[in-house]
Write a protein that binds this DNA or RNA. Structure first.
Lengths: 176, 176
DNA sequence: GCGAGATCGTTCGGATCCGTACGATAACCA
DNA sequence: TGGTTATCGTACGGATCCGAACGATCTCGC
């Protein structure tokens, strides 16, 4: 993850520390860059778009999900936003306090809570999202359409690979 | 970011909400998958490797950086670990309390604090990192070497693109 | 020498973030 | 129909996470 050293220096330093053990440097390097890219993009979008609207990354993602899927149940919102149910509770509390989102009970199943945007929340998303997407577009603008497609496919492959391993473990533990 | 809907459904729902505005769906989709992949990999590595050693993601990354670059100054560790200096202060406090890391003043510049691993910290990294890297390797094992290389290059392009835009803004504001 | 300015790590306040435990509710089944 | 089981969202404790402000220290120009 170091920024100040070349990849070669890092590999050499790693070998000095790990010793004779065989390591997969290509995998480590790829995933290291995965995190670095995700952090860089997230910080860039936060600083250039979200900050001037006094909005956090997670708050925006939750708002976006509820904007697109109005009335969605909280656990599905948490899934879509890639955060835990516990985290969502706190984030919704913040957004609710700012008058951007509403919690709404389900009449058929009283365990459920559905989320909706207020008019102010809708207005805000109609203002922010085009700005957000414009910066997204700018970030990948130097990549050809072909590269963006390949990039997206590989990212999806990685997600599927992880989920497949999780499923395999779940089945194995279900047998026991 | 939704998990439960197809890309087509999401695009249609977005168009319904954003209206006639032109959006870059390819960019949105690529970056959405970037975050999803990073989260999935991070969660997988945390659950399969770090959790049994009672180690958080950030704690591990900091430990790894200091392991490789012994005696590094805190601000560079923060840079390498992709966290703020303020966050690092808290994380180091946690690791220090567990006897894994040491804070050490610089004799020539008394503002500086250098970080080192304790013997226990070194022992722990020698134990954890091979496990960590093995799972990293497994995650990308279905990708060909060629695809991993292309993937890594594109990730680096994205990082460079964001940093180039940041630099351009810094120069612009320096002129004013 | 010696102040003005830059840079260091830390503190502070507030917002995530998560695993776990919990109470409420629903679904299942004998 | 009554009891077990599953599932829902939430409260809680503890660890990040960051921007801004701050004291300490160094640097540079005069």
């Amino acid at each position: 993850m170091p920024d100040r050293h070349t990849l070669e220096e890092t590999e050499r330093a790693m070998k000095d520390h790990v010793g004779a053990l065989p390591l997969d440097f290509a995998a480590a390097n790829a995933l290291s860059n995965l995190f670095r890219a995700a952090n860089a993009v997230r910080t860039e979008l936060t600083n250039r778009v979200l900050r001037q609207h006094d909005m956090t990354w997670t708050g925006f993602v939750v708002l976006w999900v509820v904007w697109i899927w109005d009335g969605m149940e909280t656990r599905h919102v948490a899934d879509s936003a890639d955060i835990s149910k516990a985290t969502l509770t706190g984030v919704v509390k913040t957004l609710e306090g700012r008058g951007l989102i509403l919690r709404e009970g389900d009449e058929h199943d009283r365990r459920l809570v559905r989320l909706r945007l207020t008019d102010e929340g809708v207005r805000l998303m109609e203002e922010i999202y085009p700005e957000f997407n414009a910066v997204e577009s700018e970030i990948v603008s130097q990549l050809s359409d072909r590269k963006i497609s390949a990039f997206t496919r590989t990212l999806r492959d990685v997600v599927n690979s992880v989920e497949a391993q999780q499923d395999a473990r779940n089945e194995a533990s279900a047998e026991a």
